[in-house]
Write a protein that binds this DNA or RNA. Structure first.
Length: 579
RNA sequence: GCCUCAGUAGCUCAGUGGAUAGAGCAUCGGACUUCUAAUCCGCAGGUCGUAGGUUCGACUCCUACCUGGGGCGCCA
């Protein structure tokens, strides 16, 4: 691209003027309040040049004019050399430009991207939505960079929390089903999870009233006893327990499938904790035999990570049952057997930072060379003005409810501006509003979600981006078939800005991939669209003076639309032809 | 207590060693007989948590402190 070409020429010039080989001066985009396109920062060469900043800048500027035919002028302000590139160069650049990203040749290994990974005892909530959007988008971004990507998840389908909803349904369900109650399966099961907690608290309170301590009451409550028995039965593969488990999990999966489809995400393979925890236990037994781990008198198995600055960590309980990390070890190994991945990315909230540090160290201790290729894509949690979402306090923002609400808002805005569109467009707009709002924030940061102020559809939003795309489609419909670029006599400032921004697209995608941040791409896309809208406002397209100008501007608009669509796909939302 | 992440406009966020720190929302004021006004233009809004340090140059890097989130379970 232009910047590379300029940068290389400057390196040559520095070598000729000052005798320093391979010196690269920083080259940036000129800030908009200054005149120019690219800015060379002169300061780093001053010691070597033994000149004032202005003199060195002028010397380099003069040399650039001579040797680089895409530069038509420069301006020196202190240590900044502002370069202006020719219209011709910008025209050639946009003509050659498309959205494809040069493949990074030395890495054709597979990226595994894990995201979502819910428990099967309650429906998805807003936190899952953020997780899904980040995981899906980063997968698409890596794919766009030429990597082979497989999207996967681990489904936490076993454990005491699953047994709670099972027990509650068995005890209080009266044989009702999602079908008989016309309830989405995950919500149906979630209702019983809540019911368990309610009944359990009631039992505990009664026992406390009878004089027991809180701690004793919690242990002795009949439901607690029964749910523990149910977990033991499950581990013993008791047929009735397993049947109930299968039946209720299937209800949940049916519900999840609906939500995933609506979110627009999918998975190449699902891993289930109920399968992988056994491999995890096996690996831990092997590690114990090889003295990588050690056993305490009570029979529990531990790993000592104090040499790495961490602490000692339990891997198996005294009774031989698995803990959380047990299955994660098994899952990772199974995934390597399945895919021989070059990289594995875990999209998991930052509350588990420590867990993943431990997991990766254990895999390393076990001697898996691929342990160093595991990466925790840690993102901040979604919080409410009142703080963390808590299911017990009923403050959880349900994923399905929220999606419905987005759809309704899109509908009412559309109807209020007298341009009704139909359900599929409302869905497209509502989802874009939701997705953009969550993705535009740096993944590492906590997101604040205020249910009262609802998600915006104006300004820096998904619908704003979609609207711009729809406007361009409208122009194209009126114009007819888009032809190839014709060279205009000169470029307007808005056209120059637009072309420069468009040509920067690939850089932005590559940066987003490197930094694992869809937010970089989301913010870039907004800037691109903002510049386009300014251009649209100031420059007649179909009504331009000359037919060649119209052809150039329509072609440019069409080009921008294709970038918008490409970027939107990487962020996981669609763009409409009308809105 | 220890570890870790974050603190930028009233609110939500950009800014990843360069110039006078930028957007959106909200407020106020303009632009629809025109290619879609979910748009555009303008006004106003800041001791970049505090104090030191490194550097030609610090919102950005280092140190300490303050405030907030998260973690430090034989929970997941």
């Amino acid at each position: 691209m232009l910047d590379k070409q300029i940068s290389q020429t400057i390196t040559t010039i520095i070598s000729e003027l000052y005798g320093a080989d391979n010196m690269v001066l920083p080259l940036e985009k000129t800030p908009k309040e200054q005149s120019g396109d690219f800015t060379v920062i002169i300061f780093p060469i001053l010691k070597l040049a033994k000149q004032k900043p202005e003199d060195a800048a002028k010397a380099i500027g003069d040399a650039l004019i001579k040797s680089c035919d895409i530069i038509e002028g420069f301006e020196v302000i202190k240590g900044f050399l502002n370069l202006r590139v020719t219209d011709q160069a910008l025209y050639e650049a946009i003509k050659k430009h498309d959205c494809s990203i040069p493949k990074i040749a030395d890495d054709d290994s597979t990226y595994l991207v894990e995201y979502s990974s819910p428990n099967t005892n309650k429906p998805l909530h807003l936190g899952h939505i953020r997780n899904n959007l980040i995981g899906y988008s980063i997968s698409k971004i890596l794919q766009a960079c030429g990597h082979r990507v497989k999207m996967i998840q681990i489904i936490n389908d076993r454990g005491i929390h699953i047994c709670k909803s099972m027990l509650a349904w068995q005890r209080f369900g009266n044989e009702e089903t999602p079908k008989s109650t016309n309830t989405k399966g995950d919500h149906f099961v979630g209702k019983y999870y809540v019911e368990y907690e309610k009944q359990y608290r009631k039992e505990v309170k009664e026992l406390v009233d009878q004089g027991l301590t809180q701690e004793a009451a919690e242990k002795q409550a009949p439901l607690h006893q029964q749910v523990q028995k149910m977990l033991r039965d499950w581990e013993k593969k008791d047929p009735d327990t397993r049947d109930l488990w299968k039946k209720m999990n299937q209800w949940v999966y049916d519900g999840f499938d609906e939500s995933y489809q609506r979110l627009g995400v999918s998975f190449d393979k699902n891993y289930y904790e109920s399968n992988t925890y056994l491999l995890g236990k096996q690996v831990i037994a092997d590690g114990l035999a090889k003295k990588i781990f050690y056993q305490k008198e009570d029979g529990s198995v531990w790993v000592d990570l104090t040499d790495e600055g961490l602490d000692e960590k339990l891997l198996l309980r005294a009774d031989g049952t698995a803990v959380y990390i047990t299955q994660d070890i098994g899952t990772a190994i199974e995934r390597y057997q399945d895919y021989q991945f070059g990289h594995m990315i875990y999209t998991v909230a930052d509350e588990q930072d420590y867990h993943f540090q431990v997991l990766f160290l254990i895999l390393k201790k076990l001697g898996y060379p691929w342990a160093k290729n595991c990466y925790h894509l840690s993102y901040g949690m979604v919080t409410l003005p009142s703080g963390k979402m808590k299911s017990r306090e009923g403050t959880v923002v349900d994923a399905d409810d929220l999606m419905n609400q987005m759809h309704q808002t899109a509908r009412s805005i559309s109807e209020s501006r007298d341009t009704p569109q139909g359900d599929s467009i409302y869905e497209m707009i509502g989802m874009a509003a939701l997705k953009y709002q969550l993705l535009r924030v740096d993944p590492r940061k906590t997101v604040l979600f205020d249910p009262e102020t609802s998600i915006d559809f104006h300004g820096k939003t998904g619908p704003f981006i979609q609207y711009t795309y729809a406007r361009i489609q409208s122009i194209i419909r009126k114009y007819g078939a888009v032809k190839s670029y014709t060279q205009p006599k000169s470029l307007h400032p808005e056209e120059r800005n637009l072309i420069k921004k468009a040509c920067d697209y690939q850089n932005q995608v590559i940066q987003a991939a490197k930094q694992k941040s869809p937010a970089l791409l989301a913010n870039y896309l907004y800037e691109l669209v903002k510049i386009y809208n300014g251009f649209y406002q100031e420059n007649p397209i179909l009504n331009a003076d000359k037919q060649e100008t119209t052809q150039f501007r329509v072609t440019l608009s069409h080009h921008i639309a294709s970038i918008i669509e490409h970027a939107a796909q990487l962020l996981g939302f669609d763009v409409p032809d009308h809105m």
